[in-house]
Nucleic acid binder design. Structure first.
Lengths: 191, 191
DNA sequence: GCGATACTACACAGATCTGTGAAGTCCGCC
DNA sequence: GGCGGACTTCACAGATCTGTGTAGTATCGC
C-alpha cells in the first residue's frame, strides 16, 4: 500500500519478495528476512505490522510490476491480433527469470484460508488477465470472446505451472503458439 | 512404497494426505497428523522414518490413484478422438472434490530443493500425462502429436490452477472443450 | 509358552516460529 | 536547539517444529 517506503522497509520488501518466491511463504521466517535486509525485527514489525501483511505487500507489488510489463508490451503493439498475445510475449521473457512458477498460485497453495487478504490479490490477478483477454479479443473482432479468453488464460497458467513444477522450458513458447491459433479461430471463424 | 501398510500407518497416510492437500506441507506438523490418526508420533516415525518420506509417500499414492482413474476412463473408451480427452473427463469430476488445485504443483511450490525425492514424483506425473497425450494423439492419427500433446497438458494444468487459485469453476469444462478443438485440429488438418 | 510385530505413554532435546517490551542512537528539519 | 521519524540492541514470551529415548502392553502365529 504505502507508495513510498522507508529505506529499511524497501530493503525488507525486496528481500522478502526474493525469499518468498524462491523458498515459499512458510519456509521463510521474519528473522531471516530481517537479517538479510540488514534490519531488526523491530523495524520490520514497525513498518509492516505482521508477516501476513508483508506477504500481502509482496504479492501486491509483484502483481503491479507484472501488470506494468503487460501494459508496456501492449503499448508497443497496434495490430489487434498481436495485442491479444501481449501477455504471452511477456510470459516468454518472464519465465526464465521466474522459474518457480506462478507466485500467486504458489502463495495460494500455502494460504488455505479463503479470507486471507493475500487471496484477494491472487483472484484479482487472474481475473484481470481473463478480462484483458476478453477485451482484446473483442477489439480484434471476436464475436464471442468469453470462451476463447478463458482458453487463453488456461494456456497462460498451464505454461507457468508446467515450467515451474516440471521444468518444461518449452511450455511458454508452446503456449504462445497455441494462443495464436486460438485467437485466430475466435476472430476469424464462425462461433 | 510399502504395498501393505499396518493399520496405524494406513490411518497416518490417509490423514496426512487430507491435511497436506487442504493446508499445505509446511503448515501441517507431525504432531497434528499423529493426533488426528489416533497414533503416537513414535509410531509415525517407526513407519515412515521422516516427515519428508511421509510427504513423498503421500504424493506417490496420490499419483497412483489419479493414474488409475485415468486408465479406468481410457478402458471405457474405444473411439481414438475420445480417448485423447480421457484425462479431461477425469478432470471434470476430479476438481469439485479437489478444489485446491494440483497437489503436485502445490507441493512443488513448497519444496524448492530440486533434489527432494518428492520432486521426482511431481515431474514424473506431468511427464506421464504429456506422454499419454502424445501416444493417444498418435493413435488417433495425428501426424505430429508432440506440439498438440504439450498444448493439451497446458490446458489441463491451467484448468487446475485457475480453479484452485482463483476459484474459476468453469475452467475444467472449458479446458475439455478447448482440448476437443486442439485434438480435432491435430488429427484432421495439415500441420 | 515364545517371539515377532504393532502400538502405547510420556518426557525431552534443540531449534525455530511470530510477535513484543524497554531503552537508546542517529539525523534531518523547523 | 529541540522534535520526531527511522532505526538499533537485547531480552523475552509462548508456541510449535522435527525427531528421539525409555519403558511397557496387546495381539498374533507357531
Amino acid at each position: 500500500m504505502p507508495r513510498s517506503l522507508t529505506p529499511g522497509a524497501r530493503r525488507v520488501l525486496d528481500v522478502a519478495a526474493r525469499l518468498f518466491y524462491e523458498r515459499g511463504l512458510h519456509a521463510v521466517g521474519v528473522d531471516l528476512i530481517a537479517a538479510e535486509s540488514g534490519v531488526t525485527k523491530r523495524t520490520l514489525y514497525d513498518r509492516f505490522g505482521s508477516k501476513n501483511a508483508l506477504v500481502t505487500a509482496y504479492l501486491e507489488e509483484r502483481d503491479e510490476r507484472w501488470r506494468d510489463r503487460v501494459r508496456a508490451r501492449l503499448d508497443e503493439l497496434d495490430e489487434p491480433a498481436r495485442r491479444v498475445l501481449a501477455p504471452f510475449d511477456v510470459l516468454v521473457t518472464w519465465v526464465p527469470d521466474n522459474p518457480r512458477g506462478c507466485a500467486f498460485v504458489n502463495a495460494s497453495a500455502e494460504l488455505p484460508d479463503a479470507g486471507h487478504p493475500a487471496r484477494a490479490v491472487v483472484v484479482g490477478e487472474k481475473e484481470w488477465l481473463r478480462e484483458l483477454f476478453r477485451t482484446e479479443l473483442a477489439a480484434a473482432g471476436a464475436p464471442d470472446p468469453g470462451p476463447a479468453a478463458l482458453t487463453l488464460l488456461l494456456l497462460h497458467e498451464g505454461a507457468l505451472a508446467a515450467a515451474g513444477a516440471a521444468g518444461m522450458d518449452d511450455a511458454p513458447g508452446a503456449a504462445r503458439r497455441a494462443a495464436g491459433t486460438v485467437c485466430a479461430q475466435a476472430v476469424g471463424s464462425p462461433g
